[in-house]
Design a protein around this nucleic acid. Structure first.
Length: 340
DNA sequence: GATGCGTGGTT
DNA sequence: TAACCAAGCAT
């Protein structure tokens, strides 16, 4: 009888993963990075792009990127600026820089063969290393993203506020099967994205609700517990519209920090003097920025300046903040010229 | 462990 | 509409 509980537990867990995998086989989303013969480079690229970024936003970027640079050797050969341009608008630009750096290493050394090896690459953390190992290498790994945290927190009514890393990794480890760990991970993520959603979970469609403690309690949306969030501070700055015969001045931003490595309009932190062409507000994760766009003339331009004819600005690969600023500036500039 | 790092969709 | 949230990582 000493074996009874472990046996029941094992049966329950096998039942859980079996139910979930059956559901996945029937309902899985058809996504461009899903394949019966997964390619490590493609899976890796998708995982990087999907970090804190919605599937819908990633789709077009992923296709373009993979078409243009279909393997690690092709990517390793291109210049930084080209990759940053391709990433423009997707956000979290250090991802692109790290991905390119890692690709150059791997073009020389080959791909890591296990989770620990992947974990060493720049831009590859605990989640991504596990996801690539499970999905691309077919190895068992414990894959925990935001979806999994929510699903697990509800299944086991985790009372610890997020991130609750230790607890959730331990619980996820306990329900991860030895076979099809990659499909299991993707099943958990699909479940979180389509059924066990943050606001209005569709519990009646859930294949594992029978084993869900939050469902039994009747309050799934109370999980995961969260700590109160901080207020978002307001900041202001001035962006300069400097146009000459050759075009508009764009500067390459320093590699680290906000919009690191991207092209942008020259910016000064203090309020500047000069004709105001407009104002844009942009919400970042940790602050809200109001940007005055002013016409500049003799502003000191530090660092690398590129002059882009205004008709070509669409192809410069500007991050969204500066795309907005450029649009405003050109509209107002046109008004000034026509209206007087 | 807390903070900095983008952007767009949903409610 | 403001808040919330999304296949996180580096420091």
């Amino acid at each position: 009888m000493a074996q009874a509980w472990p046996t029941l537990k094992r049966l329950y867990l096998n039942d859980f993963s079996a139910r979930l995998l059956d559901w996945y086989d029937a309902h899985r989303r058809d996504l461009p990075w899903r394949s019966d013969t997964p390619d490590a480079y493609a899976v890796w690229l998708s995982e990087i792009m999907l970090q804190q970024t919605t599937v819908a936003a990633v789709m077009a970027y992923y296709r373009r990127f993979l078409t243009r640079w279909p393997d690690v050797r092709a990517l390793a050969a291109v210049e930084d600026a080209e990759v940053m341009r391709e990433w423009a608008g997707l956000g979290y630009y250090s991802r692109a820089r790290n991905f390119l750096a890692a690709a150059r290493m791997m073009a020389a050394e080959g791909f890591p063969v296990d989770e620990a090896g992947w974990r060493q690459l720049p831009g590859v953390g605990r989640y991504t290393a596990a996801a690539v190992a499970a999905i691309a290498l077919g190895q068992r790994a414990v894959v925990v993203d935001g979806n999994v945290k929510r699903v697990v927190a509800r299944l086991f009514i985790v009372e610890t506020p997020l991130p609750a890393e230790d607890e959730i990794y331990r619980l996820t480890d306990a329900i991860t099967p030895g076979e099809r760990a990659g499909d299991f991970a993707q099943a958990m993520m699909d479940l979180g994205a389509t059924v066990c959603t943050p606001r209005s979970p569709k519990c009646l469609l859930c294949p594992v609700r029978a084993g869900c403690r939050a469902y039994r309690q009747g309050n799934p949306t109370d999980y995961p517990r969260r700590s109160p969030k901080k207020a978002r501070p307001e900041r202001t700055a001035t962006a300069w519209w400097i146009e000459r015969g050759e075009g508009v001045a764009l500067v390459r931003r320093p590699p680290k920090g906000l919009l690191g490595g991207m092209l942008g309009l020259p910016v000064s932190e203090d309020a500047g003097a000069g004709e105001r062409l407009g104002q844009v507000t942009h919400v970042f994760t940790h602050f809200r920025l109001t940007l005055d766009v002013r016409r500049g003339t003799e502003i000191a331009l530090d660092g690398d300046v590129e002059w882009w004819p205004r008709e070509t600005l669409d192809e410069a690969g500007l991050p969204t903040l500066f795309r907005k600023a450029v649009t405003i500036a050109m509209q107002e500039d046109a008004n000034v010229r026509s209206g007087g």
